[in-house]
Design a protein around this nucleic acid. Structure first.
Lengths: 175, 175
DNA sequence: GCCTTTTACTTGACTGGTCAAGCACCTGCG
DNA sequence: CGCAGGTGCTTGACCAGTCAAGTAAAAGGC
């Protein structure tokens, strides 16, 4: 384990082996996600959007014409983002998002995808899918889904204490 | 798959299933790492350091009295960090790092851990290890190491194009 | 019908991260 | 020895993310 080829221990030139399997896994997980993220970020970056912005645009595309209130977008993001307002500000400035106050609840601001955004997403769909495939290319689909299943358990374990169900979510699941 | 409990599809309330295993895996990977990162970040945060700063301090502890030049630290970081100089600036301002010019190569700046830093790390060792264990608690060690092995392959696949071996690394491996 | 509480953001001040350019220093090569 | 080119950082300008406090609207009492 001490500096073996292809392992994190080797890559970051660590002098001592990991104290536990969990510690090694945490480091490997964060490092791997970081690399994958860079690859995707790079693809988005070529079209002038960050990965977070891309994520928002995809969420809005999925929401369709109805649009989505600001905090609902935040709740669906892959990575938590408290700066959601400003993030969308920038997208609105670039005419990738339109906002309007919700008539039935004037506290909410409904966000909509614009045609520019849909065009941008259409351009990004293929390269993003390719970037994802490239990362998991050495693994068969079965192995890939195995990772997914294992990671789901990890998220459940740390997410349980980390991100307690919000009130909004509780309310939603009640009906 | 469409919104099943405990899966990413359910958690982020996605309306359509994923187009491919790779895309699902990418989303799951980034989301999971993000949650794990938050948990660790939170532990560090209570002692006033970011996860990146903690990583630097650990690297310097590992380096011992010899210290380590700035860019060597950057190379060993779990997440790539071009802002390494400023990151260390902040650590130096808080007296967690000492810097001095290397006498044999005056371009390099050798960074050293201070006693304050060692004390801080000693305080963080246990809670950080616990946070890591908590994330992987539902998995047996064998399953945990299975994830590590799979993720190593993913990193190799996207890292190959993403982060080509630097010249410095080539030089080092030559002797 | 008012008054508290909750929700859904928004704003301001700040910290931290990123990119590009620059400077000091070393390393060969003629 | 001098100088072209590479290395190792640092700096400045910018942008994105974070935290705390504030505002406006809805919801729920009494």
């Amino acid at each position: 384990m001490l500096g073996a080829l292809g392992t994190i221990g080797g890559e970051i030139r660590q002098t001592r082996p990991f104290a536990s399997a969990a510690e090694e896994a945490v480091v490997t997980l964060v490092a791997t996600a970081s690399r994958v993220r860079e690859g995707l970020s790079d693809v988005c970056g070529r079209r002038g959007v960050t990965l977070q912005q891309y994520n928002v645009l995809r969420i809005l595309r999925g929401a369709g014409d109805a649009g989505l209130p600001t905090l609902d977008i935040a709740a669906r993001m892959i990575e938590r983002s408290p700066g959601i307002t400003r993030l969308i500000d920038r997208l609105e400035a670039r005419r990738l998002v339109r906002r309007k106050r919700c008539p039935s609840d004037r506290r909410q601001v409904l966000c909509h995808s614009t045609n520019d955004a849909l065009r941008l997403l259409a351009e990004l769909d293929l390269p993003m899918a390719e970037a994802a495939s490239r990362c998991f290319a050495p693994l068969e689909d079965a192995r890939t889904l195995e990772i997914v299943a294992l990671l789901d358990q990890v998220r459940a374990a740390c997410g349980a204490v980390q991100r307690p169900e919000t009130l909004a979510e509780k309310t939603r699941s009640r009906h």
